[in-house]
């Protein structure tokens, strides 16, 4: 009886790498996104800037927890990385534009 041959899984498709990738996404892009989203919201939400800023900062951990839960729910790594990248680009870009517009 021929021996069963195990083809090794590609490095990035190993379960441990799958989890590592998610953790890495949360720690890098996820963290940047929460910060940039915070800045963006502080420009968008009307009212006293200090008060808005305090609320956003106080609730930042709530957003971050939600993001972590979503990342661990979402199956596709592509979706996770792409969504986070788009989120960061959008919030950073929009914040810069608003900042530039405000100081003109």
């Amino acid at each position: 009886m021929p021996l069963e041959r195990h083809t090794p899984q590609p490095f990035f498709k190993r379960p441990s790498m799958y989890i590592t990738s998610k953790i890495f996404a949360i720690c890098t892009l996820g963290f940047i996104l929460i910060n940039s989203l915070g800045v963006f919201l502080s420009f968008v939400i009307p009212g006293d800037q200090f008060d808005v800023l305090v609320w956003i900062t106080v609730l930042a951990f709530l957003f971050y927890s939600g993001l972590i839960m979503w990342v661990f729910h979402e199956k596709s790594l592509k979706v996770i990385w792409l969504s986070l990248t788009i989120g960061v680009i959008f919030t950073v870009g929009a914040s810069l534009l608003m900042w530039w517009g405000k100081n003109q």
Binding site: N35, G38, S42, F43, Q49, L53, I56, T57, A60, S95
Partner: peptide, 10 residues
């Protein structure tokens, strides 16, 4: 300590 960038950026 964790999110100082939000205030700084704002």
């Amino acid at each position: 300590s964790f999110f100082p960038l939000i205030a700084a950026g704002s």
